[in-house]
């Protein structure tokens, strides 16, 4: 199925070595994978397996030690600082474990931060509507619950209508009930807008909602499985 779809990301023999003092840490040891348009992929692995490093490099936040990452045929691993900024600005949306909202701005303004610099954004209110926060537009982060803050972060990430959404442990700081609400929001975005979505998690239960599950372990891809039957986010529990 995937083979007919556009290949958004092509990752080839990706390696990443961090120098921590005198110790060299091999975070990625030759990862090869793809991400296709419109699919929802869960990258599953324990802490230290290299999944965040992989996501950071795909998101243009970090550089690779070796190998190639290309986005729609353009090599990110060779891009300049300026090109990476543009890539992040126009093509990719991020969701982090700790939301990373601007605390001095309201929910609507946090979304506007992105819509103001995007070429063809949706209205901030529409984005917040999609994540079910239309009644929280003028609240500051300090006035929102963790789940609500994460949904604002999702609204912010999708408001520029990115081709790809990269989510790093989006439910990591939330209880299961709230986590499911957040995953429902991601699921809806993927379904309704067709945004290719990569979710990093160490939570096995989330894997059920993915089209494909990529298992990472110790800097390698251990296995890739395709979910024949995708679960809806509301069916998940942990």
């Amino acid at each position: 199925m995937n083979q007919q779809k556009e290949k958004f990301f092509q990752v080839q023999d990706l390696t990443k070595v961090y120098q921590m003092g005198e110790v060299a840490v091999h975070a990625l040891r030759g990862v090869t994978m793809e991400l296709y348009a419109g699919e929802l992929v869960v990258l599953l692995g324990p802490s230290g397996s290299g999944k965040s490093t992989l996501l950071n490099i795909m998101g243009g936040l970090d550089t690779a030690t070796g190998g190639v990452v290309s986005y729609r045929g353009k090599e990110l691993t060779k891009a300049t600082e300026k090109e990476l900024t543009e890539y992040r600005r126009f093509h990719v949306g991020f969701v982090f474990q700790f939301y990373n909202l601007i605390s001095s701005l309201t929910a609507r303004e946090n979304v506007s931060v992105v819509t103001e610099i995007a070429p063809d954004p949706m209205a901030p209110q529409q984005a917040l509507d999609l994540v079910g926060l239309s009644d929280r537009l003028n609240h500051f982060p300090a006035q929102l619950s963790g789940g609500e803050q994460q949904r604002v972060a999702i609204a912010r990430a999708i408001s520029k209508k990115p081709a790809v959404l990269l989510c790093d442990e989006p439910t990591g700081a939330l209880d299961s009930q709230t986590g499911i609400v957040v995953l429902q929001a991601l699921e809806r975005i993927n379904r309704e807008l067709g945004t290719a979505t990569a979710i990093i998690t160490h939570n096995v239960d989330i894997a059920g909602m993915a089209d494909r599950v990529i298992h990472l372990s110790n800097g390698h891809i251990a296995s890739v499985e395709i979910n024949k039957v995708k679960k809806s986010a509301s069916e998940l529990q942990w």
Partner: peptide
Amino acid sequence: RELSSLRVLGYTR
């Protein structure tokens, strides 16, 4: 942290 978030969102230096 906020400034980095903005950089991640595509804001220039």
